[in-house]
Structures are given as C-alpha cells and as structure tokens.
Simulated scan of single mutants.
Amino acid sequence: MNQSPSDAFVVPAVDIGPYVRAGEDAERARVVREIDEACSRVGFVQILGHGIPDPVVDGLAGALDDFFGLPMDDKQQYRVVGANRGYSPPKSESLSLSLGVESASRMNDFFEAYNVGVEARSFPHLDLSEDDYGLNVWPDVPGFEDRVQTYFTEASRVARTLTRIFADALGQAPDYFERLTDHSIDVLRMNNYALPEGTVDLDGDLTGMGEHTDFGIVTVLWADRVAGLQVLGSDGIWHDVEPLPGALLVNLGDLTARITDDRWMSTLHRVKPPIVDGRIRRRRSVAFFHDGNVDAVVSTLPEYAGPEPYEPILIRDHVKAKLAGSRHGKANTAAVREAARVLAATGENRA
C-alpha cells in the first residue's frame, strides 16, 4: 500500500520555546494548537526549543559510550533482577508482551539497556516504597553518574513543560498533571543497539525492540539520527522516524490516552535493527519516562469520555502489568486496545 504525497506520514515538529522562555500569549497559543493536532493525529511529535544545552547531550552520549563499551562480564555486574533499575542484557526483555502480544520468539529484543530513575527516598515527606520505585545502581565508570544525572534533570524539566502545555491544550487547570506527577515514577532508559557478530544467538525475526506503547504520561526521547525507530500510523503501516537535528522525539503514554479516551493517541512503536551492508549499524537512544504518581488513579476526563471509556486505574497496577510483560515474560491481558492495533497492522512502509 503506497501513500500519496498529500497523505504521507509525518511526525510534526513543534517549537515549544514560548513555554520554556515564558513567551507571549499568542506564541503559547500556537504551541497549544500544534501540540493538540500532533497528539490527535500521530501521538508523536518532534520538539525544538526545548532548551537542553548541547554539552549536556554530549555528556550523556559519552556516558553511554563509556558504559556500553565495557566487556559484557563487567556490565553484568550491574544487572538487578526483578527491578526496573540497572543493566538489562540482550534478549532479557520482550516489549511486545507488555501488550499481551506473543512475538514469534519470546524475549528476543536484542538491545541492551541501563535504567536509572527517581527513588522513593527522593520524597521523604511521603510514605512510599522502593518496591514501586527502585534503588539506583551506578556503574564504576568515571563521570557516568554526574553526566547522566545532569541530563536527567534537564529531561525532567522538559517533560513537566510538556504536561503544562498538555493541560492548556486539554482545557484543564494549569496544575492538572502536576497533581498526577508530583512524586512521579520517572525512569531514564539508555539503550544500545549494537552487537558484534557471535555475541548473542537470535532466533526468529531480528528485533531491536518489539512493538509496544509506553506506560505512562509522556516520553522524551533523545536518539542518534540513525534509522531504526518505526511508528505505526493510522493506515496500519509501520513508518520510519528519525529525529531532526537538535530535536527530541516525544510520544504519549497509555495514561494520557486514557485521560482523553484515545482522542490523544498512545502510538505503537518498535525498533528494527538498522542493517547496512549486512551488518547492524550502531544506534543509541535515551528515553525519559514520566509515568506519574504510583498512588494516583487515572480516569478519563468527562468531556472526552466516549460511550465505552476506559475504567479508572491505579498507576501502580498499570505499570506493574506492563513491566510483568516486558521483563518477566507474562503477557499483559489488560492491554486490549493496544494489542488489537498491533494485530491489525498490515505491513511495512513501501513509500
């Protein structure tokens, strides 16, 4: 199925600078309109004007290179079984199972990753459990923690700027999302798609990261300008997406889709390994997941509720079900709408 130029799949680019630098009302209204359209039509958006300095991004990229360049035995020391922290080696996850979709080969996502995030002890005034958050494990790599933490702070700022824009776009009070995220489970996942030949045995289709939707409210993604990321369009076709120079890719998570009863989309995406001349080309990405308060209940806003709106859900329960699929091989039977979209996908982009 080919698309004509007039209806070609495009991830819109939006300059959010007026919200970063407190711009004029007319400028902010333009941002709101463009974000609303992108969230309604695609569920993905490229953001410019985010304000993260280039040296901070360069430091993050260097930290990734330093860690993932270690021997596998060294990296395995930082694996934390059962927690969404630390190192995940190749073939230890299957993102498609977070949707309840059985892939041709379970636990076949060949990327490796390192996760850090907010800890329960970051909120000493609240009675929270590290079972819901997790304790960070920092590798013995010079400057790794400082470089990653610096970027984490900037990505958190961008995510909260976006939710402020979301509140305006949805006609809600300015603090609507703040009430859902003031002790949010925020996780930074650093991904590396590059495996020397013979490092890992792969059966079935070669998959970088299986098809999935993100769990929470919004995801902010930095990535190399290397092919691999694919987004499922409303045409049922997977489309390649690369970030513009200096842009961050942003996509909505399941909880925002629930809030709007799918008026705004939690778009399915995956990573197919970039293969050039028969060899996997290295690709790096870093996703900041802004998932919301563990003890918050998410409900569909009444003004967006259709005839069969989502049932209210506790964020803790939603995240646990998704993680049980991706990390523990237990299919998530609650992701009915998302799984149906995967199964309905008709093919690849041939445009």
Score class of each variant (00 low, 15 high):
Met1Asn: 03
Asn2His: 10
Ser4Asp: 11
Asp7Gln: 10
Phe9Ser: 05
Val10Gly: 02
Pro12His: 12
Gly17Cys: 04
Pro18Thr: 09
Pro18Arg: 11
Arg28His: 08
Ala29Phe: 01
Arg30Phe: 00
Val31Ile: 06
Val32Ala: 10
Glu37Gln: 14
Phe44Gln: 04
Val45His: 09
His50Leu: 09
Asp58Ile: 03
Leu60Val: 02
Leu60Tyr: 05
Ala61Phe: 00
Ala63Gly: 04
Leu64Glu: 06
Met72Trp: 02
Met72Asn: 02
Asp74Asn: 00
Asp74Lys: 01
Gln76Leu: 15
Gln77Pro: 00
Ser88Gln: 09
Leu95Val: 00
Leu99Pro: 08
Glu102Lys: 13
Ser105Arg: 14
Ser105Phe: 08
Glu112Gln: 04
Ala113Lys: 02
Ala113Tyr: 00
Glu119Gln: 15
Glu119Arg: 10
Arg121Pro: 00
Phe123Gln: 04
Pro124Ala: 07
Pro124Gln: 12
Leu126Met: 13
Leu128Val: 11
Asp132Val: 03
Asp132His: 14
Tyr133Ser: 00
Asn136Ile: 01
Trp138Ser: 03
Asp140Arg: 00
Tyr151Ile: 05
Ala155Ser: 13
Val158Asp: 13
Arg160His: 14
Thr161Ala: 11
Ala169Asn: 06
Gly171Val: 01
Asp175Asn: 15
Phe177Val: 10
Arg179Val: 01
Thr181Cys: 13
Ser184Cys: 11
Ser184His: 01
Ile185Met: 08
Leu188Lys: 02
Met190Gly: 00
Ala194Met: 05
Ala194His: 14
Leu195Asn: 12
Leu195Ile: 08
Val200Asp: 02
Val200Ala: 10
Asp201Met: 11
Asp201Gly: 06
Leu202Arg: 13
Gly208Asn: 13
Gly208Val: 11
Thr213Leu: 11
Asp214Leu: 07
Ile217Gly: 05
Val218Asn: 06
Thr219Asn: 10
Thr219Lys: 04
Val220Ser: 10
Val220Trp: 09
Leu221Cys: 12
Leu221His: 07
Ala223Ser: 15
Ala223Arg: 08
Asp224Arg: 05
Arg225Cys: 05
Val226Cys: 04
Leu229Met: 13
Leu229Lys: 05
Glu242Ala: 12
Leu244Tyr: 06
Leu244Thr: 08
Leu248Lys: 01
Leu249Cys: 02
Val250Met: 03
Asn251His: 12
Leu252Met: 05
Asp254Lys: 13
Asp254Thr: 14
Thr256Val: 15
Asp261Tyr: 07
Asp262Trp: 06
Arg263Cys: 01
Met265Asn: 08
Ser266Asp: 03
Leu268Cys: 09
His269Ile: 07
Val271Gln: 04
Pro274Tyr: 03
Ile280Asn: 10
Val286Leu: 01
Asn293Val: 09
Val297Ala: 04
Ser299Pro: 02
Ser299Phe: 00
Leu301Cys: 07
Pro302Thr: 00
Gly306Ile: 09
Pro307Val: 06
Glu308Arg: 15
Glu311Thr: 11
Glu311Asn: 09
Ile313Gln: 12
Arg316Lys: 15
Arg316Ile: 05
Asp317Leu: 07
Lys320His: 11
Leu323Phe: 10
Gly329Ile: 10
Lys330Tyr: 04
Ala335Val: 06
Ala340Trp: 12
Arg341Thr: 03
Leu343Asn: 14
Leu343Glu: 15
Thr346Tyr: 01
Gly347Ser: 09
Asn349Tyr: 08
Asn349Gln: 14
